[in-house]
């Protein structure tokens, strides 16, 4: 059977795709921001000596790293509203699932980055009379951050792809918009091809940048 390619019908719906792209980027950026911020505190809590901090933080990280992101999103959309007093729309549910998921992974990146800094750096900072927070902020984090950047960028790539999972709870990101277009136009092959390409064009440059950065960082050390 010969398929007659009809990309015209995809492009006449460019407005829908544009909205989808906007929502995909919005979801990814918001979740990355929250994930990076929360991850730092969860990472710090997890490696604190206080059990009241480290036990809950460890449980959090293990739960989010060892369950599918799709389940997390669906849980926040379908289950969470039942046990909480809040009404939750699809954007909020997707944001909750994906940003907590990202926070769990980021906390591990922070930990590995900080642990990669030589003990002598802590010692030198301490010997100068710095407090723990000053040692961290002035000496350890600036060095660790540079080593963490490639890992965070990889996280951003994963996250951007994971936003497509939000289509199952009818959040209007790219894949959900594609579903809509293909239902109206009966052209799933063309629509999903175009959506795949859009993702590729968005993500590929980041992937190349990560590789470049990794090469540069390894040269300096």
């Amino acid at each position: 059977m010969e398929h007659i390619w009809d990309f015209e019908s995809v492009f006449t719906n460019w407005r829908l795709l544009l909205i989808g792209l906007g929502n995909t980027v919005l979801l990814a950026v918001v979740c990355l921001g929250i994930g990076l911020f929360l991850g730092l505190f969860i990472g710090a809590a997890r490696y604190s000596k206080n059990r009241l901090l480290n036990v809950p933080a460890s449980v959090f990280v293990e739960v989010f790293r060892n369950t599918p992101a799709l389940v997390q999103i669906m849980w926040f959309f379908f289950a969470f509203p039942i046990i909480s007093p809040f009404r939750i729309d699809s954007f909020t549910a997707a944001t909750l699932g994906l940003s907590l998921n990202t926070a769990a992974f980021c906390s591990e990146i922070y930990r590995a980055g900080i642990q990669s800094i030589h003990r002598g750096q802590w010692e030198a900072a301490k010997a100068l009379g710095m407090r723990y927070g000053e040692q961290m902020r002035r000496v350890i984090l600036p060095q660790a951050m540079r080593r963490m950047i490639p890992a965070f960028m990889n996280r951003a790539i994963e996250l951007t792809k994971m936003t497509s999972l939000a289509s199952v709870i009818a959040f209007g990101e790219l894949v959900h918009q594609a579903k809509t277009i293909s239902t109206i136009e009966f052209n799933p092959i063309e629509t999903y091809t175009v959506v795949g390409l859009i993702f590729f064009i968005m993500i590929w440059p980041i992937a190349i940048a990560v590789r470049g950065l990794e090469r540069r960082l390894s040269r300096h050390e």
Partner: peptide, 15 residues
């Protein structure tokens, strides 16, 4: 510690 200076075997400068 702020009033006692220390110099280490491996320098430990902030790179």
């Amino acid at each position: 510690r702020a009033t006692v200076g220390m110099v280490f075997q491996h320098f430990n400068l902030f790179p």
